[in-house]
């Protein structure tokens, strides 16, 4: 029981220098296709006027939410959660419908045209499973990205959070993200979650197709059951010689 891990990230945006080593490391590790990326350095832009300026850089990625909307959006379960909390995509099982991409309030997913599957940060599970840090964390030049087990009191993430106020990218949408920020994130940063509308296909499926189909089958079963009951009562007299 004590072995159950809860992986997550702690990000110190004060230490992010927007060098994008993480983006390149991620691209290299996962051969992310050109023009797309799994992780970002988000900013709300330059604040103020010359010479009173400031700019906050926010390393950003899949938040590995505990209440991940992508999990509900994925019809097959190709998007799934590992026991350690990482939200994953089984690329072999993904049929590329893109519903998860539209469901993520963080826009942390994209559709990979080459492979025809949804793609996002998977916590570099291959690396962590062999004891390495995720590629972005390992290479973070400013030391802004941290990764570890929240269930381990001695983990680097828990140590980093100790005595610090932890902030998460939560507004009226709270999907229980597993990424904690050590600095308050500016309100106009691109990273904040946004409510997503269900696609018409999903609405049709959820509201009409599933209940309608169940109803149709149910009615038929009921009809046949009543016929069967009648047959039991009246017997198979018609055929008797």
């Amino acid at each position: 029981m004590a072995d159950v891990k809860r992986y997550g990230y702690v990000i110190d945006s004060a230490r992010c220098i927007d060098c994008r080593a993480c983006l390149v490391a991620c691209r290299a590790e996962w051969q992310v296709p050109e023009g797309q990326t799994r992780i970002w350095v988000n900013s709300s832009g330059l604040k103020g006027t010359f010479p009173n300026l400031s700019q906050q850089f926010v390393p950003f990625q899949c938040q590995h939410c505990r209440d991940a909307p992508c999990l509900d959006a994925c019809p097959t379960g190709a998007t799934y959660r590992r026991e350690d909390g990482l939200v994953m995509i089984d690329e072999e099982a993904c049929i590329g419908c893109g519903l998860c991409v539209k469901a993520c309030p963080y826009d942390a997913r994209f559709y990979n045209e080459e492979k025809g599957v949804a793609e996002k940060c998977n916590g570099c599970y291959t690396r962590i499973d062999r004891g390495e840090l995720p590629a972005c964390v390992a290479t973070c030049v400013g030391g802004a990205r941290l990764f570890g087990d929240f269930n381990d009191p001695d983990s680097v993430v828990n140590k980093a959070l100790k005595g610090r106020a932890a902030h998460r990218l939560i507004n009226e949408i709270d999907t229980q993200p597993n990424v904690y920020y050590l600095e308050p994130i500016e309100e106009d940063n691109q990273s904040w979650p946004e409510a997503k509308e269900m696609t018409p296909a999903e609405t049709f499926w959820r509201k009409l197709a599933t209940p309608g189909t169940k109803l149709a089958i149910g009615a038929m079963v009921l009809g046949q059951a009543s016929a069967f009951a009648k047959q039991l009562v009246s017997g198979e007299n018609e055929f008797e010689e």
Binding site: A209, T213, M220
Partner: peptide, 21 residues
């Protein structure tokens, strides 16, 4: 992509109706 998104519930519904039959 809406083709794929609609294909799923339509596939499901078509199967459902045939199964009802």
């Amino acid at each position: 992509q809406w083709l794929i998104q609609w294909a799923m519930p339509i596939h499901f519904t078509a199967v459902g109706l045939v199964v009802a039959g």
